[in-house]
Design a protein around this nucleic acid. Structure first.
Lengths: 157, 157
DNA sequence: CTCAAATTGACAACTAGTTTCCATAGTGGG
DNA sequence: CCCACTATGGAAACTAGTTGTCAATTTGAG
């Protein structure tokens, strides 16, 4: 192989592969972690989006917060409302688009999950410095921003 | 909020969220990138696994290389064989588990995709230093290893 | 007010992966 | 050789997301 080991493109490719592997791992770990709470990683993320907002949100708002499509979020919400994690309440700004509020059960699930996650995450990174973690986070966010910017798409208003 | 902003657990949580966001973005970008080649990110990864191995592989070997389940890889392979990217050839070590070899078309798709990706990746990271990218990669891999370590697997050959 | 555009929810079909179960093929120990 | 065990492929049901279509609601320009 004659690939230059210091080429940015090559490193970026390796970062991409690392991101894919990590994502799979993290989802699986998350599923294990919150299984005792009758949650999955996906449901946990939905609950987290509303919990962190601190107020009921509409389905499209939740989708935006999670970075998934409106329909994807709606699907989860329909199931999770049926399962008692959320309840619909009237949206003063849009009669036919209800806000989803966490029920007692939903709130309890979120704080239980957060507690589990804090313990797990704290034990995971014992031999990585805070500095290193910070820099990695910044680098990932920088890549994400560059991914967003160069394709303005055709959506100019 | 009394969360310590410098707590490792908090940073790790943010890294996890960044990984999720990035993964979604990268898959979408990958789909766009290889769409002209009649590929998707998933198919591209399967082709890449075999191409990088440099020799035909069995379905379970491909699954392992990709970090997905045997059945997941098998599904892609069944479709991609039908679409002419792979052809089965006899496995001297296992009569009923064929090796999957890239066809001419598969080889061409891989090199076309790699060319597109190199151009794209090289243009993406203009304002990140090689050093930063390297460190981020190492950090991600370190996290991945720590995720893996408590659950050792069995199984070569 | 009215009509066009945008937003929204429901639904269907699809991609890509998972788990589970089954039948068969290969392997090694007795 | 035989028998238990493992590896494999196939199929089905499932999770979680996507795109696309449709009808109804909401909004805003004129």
């Amino acid at each position: 192989m004659h690939i230059q080991p210091n080429s940015k493109a090559v490193i970026l490719t390796e970062i991409m592969l690392a991101v894919f592997r990590l994502q799979g791992r993290l989802l699986k770990k998350g599923d294990e972690l919150v299984k005792p709470l009758n949650l999955t990683s996906a449901k946990w993320q939905v609950i987290g989006a509303v919990a962190l907002a601190g107020k009921p949100l509409s389905a499209p708002q939740i989708a935006e917060a999670m970075g998934i499509t409106r329909q994807g979020a709606q699907k989860q919400l329909n199931k999770m409302e049926k399962d008692g994690f959320f309840e619909r309440c009237p949206n003063p700004y849009h009669r036919s688009s209800p806000l989803y509020a966490l029920t007692e059960r939903g709130i309890r699930s979120f704080s239980d999950a957060m507690a589990l996650e804090t313990v797990w995450a704290g034990g995971l990174v014992t031999d990585l410095s805070l500095q290193r973690l910070h820099e990695a986070l910044q680098t990932l966010n920088a890549i994400h921003e560059q991914l967003d910017s160069p394709v303005p798409k055709q959506g100019d208003r």
